Structures are given as structure tokens and as C-alpha cells.
Amino acid sequence: MGEALVFQQVSFAYDSNVHQAVLQDVSFSVKKGEFVSVVGPSGAGKSTLFRLVSGLEKQNSGRILVNGKELADRQGHVGYMSQKDGLLPWLSVVDNAALPLILKGFSKKEVWPEVIKKLEAFGLKDVEHRYPDELSGGMRQRVSFLRALLGGSDLLLLDEPFSALDAVTKTVMHEWLLDQWAESGRTILFITHDVEEALFLSDRVLLFSEKPVSHLEEILVPLDRPRMVEDLKDPAFTELKEKLLLDLRKLVTL
């Protein structure tokens, strides 16, 4: 199967201040096709991890490999979406979704028909010419996810993409995301502070358990796939959720 992402003894400190390191000799890997979530309290370093994987920051030491390659510039090799959908308000839905292809030099005439088909498959039929402020939160996130897919990367980094949604919409989006992940075969690294969300979506959960982070505790999720909302009532799921919440509470300092 191979590995989509590998951290080998990665260290990072802002302003190269080794005495205030965020990550210290961190090693972990994500296999191709896996769905892995990263969970930790606020300020634990989740956003730093996002910036390192996406190439927005460069590690002070260690190696980061994407699909087996150590790249001088990871931007463009990792698809990502964040809590803010990042849609450009002056572009229509189809133009926002097609943006990665347009930036690669394709013309609108070339890509619009295929992008419109994909919008329909994402439950966005007949909204291709609307603008972001005319869409619901869930619809905006679907456009953002499609744009990440069209970027062409096999590795997708999602940074709390559903945290701004209401509980009902978030639940619907979880099931929708799992369907899209299963169909696309992509690898997803999902960053969240929501334990239930992480467990429901993931094959494995990586827990930030200290600062500076030198080790990520690994939790295997004991649920078969495909998953439905009803699985949240599974006793094994409930027990694991309570344990994780307790572990996280011990890490929070007021």
C-alpha cells in the first residue's frame, strides 16, 4: 500500500527558538488510503502540524516525506481545506471549484463541463452560477472539498472543516465526507478538537499528549466500515470516547 505521509524525527519552533519548540523529534506515518485524525487541546500544536504538512512552514530538522519523496516545496503536492472554506466571494461556485485547474493553465471552456458534473455529484446541482454568500455552510464546505480534490493531490489535509457548522449539518457532512473518501481513494489527515468526530471518521486517531510534542499516542478505532450515525451508540465507541475525553482533560491547563 505504501505511505502517503511520513514524519521522521521532525522538530519545529517558531523563530527557530529551540527552547520553545512545538514539535521535538516527532515521528509518525499515514498509509495511502487511510483516514487519520489528529486530536489535542487548544495550543497543543495541531495548527503547526497543518502548516508543516501543507508546506506553509518548514521544519527545523528531520524529514517530511509525501508519497515517498522529500520535497523542497510541498505546496501544490498536498490538497487542503480549513475551517474557513476559503471560497473567493467574487467568483461563482463553478469558478471557485475549478480554480486549481485554472491556475494550472486550463481554460474555463475546457474544465467547466467536468466540474459542473462533479458539482452535481456533490449534491450541488443548479448552484454552479451562484456566489458563496448564497450558499449554506454545508454547501460551501462541499465546494471547498471538491476544489481540494481537483487540486490533484492524493493526500488531503482537512483542518477542522466542520467546526463552524451546526450539529445536524455536521452529522450529515460526516456521512457525506466518508462517502466521498471511500469513492475517491484519497488519503485524509483530519485535524480536529472534537473527539466524537475524530473517532467516527477515522481508522486511527493520533493524540497530542504533551508540549513540546515528542510523541503522538495512537488509538485504533474499533468500528467496521461503512459507518452510520447509529454507530455512535456502539458500546465500544462510547467507552473509547469517554477514555479519550478523560485523557484530554488531563492535558488542559486553565
Rank of each mutant, 00 (worst) to 15 (best):
K117P: 07
K118E: 15
L119N: 05
L119F: 08
L119I: 05
A121I: 08
A121V: 11
A121Y: 04
A121G: 14
F122C: 09
F122T: 12
F122D: 04
F122A: 10
G123Q: 08
G123R: 09
G123H: 10
L124H: 07
K125V: 11
K125Q: 15
K125M: 09
K125D: 12
D126K: 14
D126G: 08
D126V: 10
D126T: 14
D126M: 09
D126W: 13
V127A: 06
V127N: 04
V127Q: 08
V127M: 09
V127I: 15
E128Q: 15
E128N: 14
H129Y: 15
H129I: 02
R130V: 06
R130L: 15
R130W: 10
R130Y: 14
Y131G: 06
Y131I: 01
Y131P: 03
Y131Q: 11
Y131N: 04
Y131H: 12
P132I: 12
P132Y: 09
P132G: 11
D133F: 14
D133S: 15
E134W: 03
E134V: 11
E134T: 08
E134A: 15
E134I: 07
L135A: 10
L135M: 13
L135K: 05
L135Y: 09
S136E: 11
S136Q: 10
S136A: 13
G137A: 13
G137F: 08
G137D: 06
G138A: 10
G138M: 07
M139R: 06
M139L: 12
M139P: 05
M139K: 03
R140L: 10
R140C: 10
R140Y: 06
Q141M: 14
Q141K: 15
Q141V: 09
Q141S: 05
Q141A: 11
R142A: 11
R142F: 04
R142V: 11
R142M: 12
R142Y: 03
R142T: 01
R142C: 07
V143A: 05
V143C: 08
V143P: 03
S144G: 14
S144P: 07
F145W: 12
F145G: 04
F145D: 04
L146G: 06
L146V: 08
R147E: 00
R147H: 12
R147A: 06
R147C: 08
R147D: 00
A148Q: 01
L149F: 13
L149E: 01
L149M: 11
L150M: 12
L150E: 04
L150S: 08
G151V: 12
G151Y: 01
G151D: 04
G151T: 12
G151F: 00
S153P: 00
S153E: 01
D154C: 04
D154T: 09
D154W: 02
D154Y: 00
L155T: 02
L156G: 02
L156F: 00
L156H: 00
L156Q: 01
L157N: 02
L157R: 01
L157A: 04
L157H: 00
L157Y: 00
L157P: 00
L158T: 02
L158Y: 03
L158P: 00
D159C: 02
D159H: 03
D159N: 07
D159V: 03
E160F: 05
E160K: 04
P161V: 04
P161T: 11
P161Y: 03
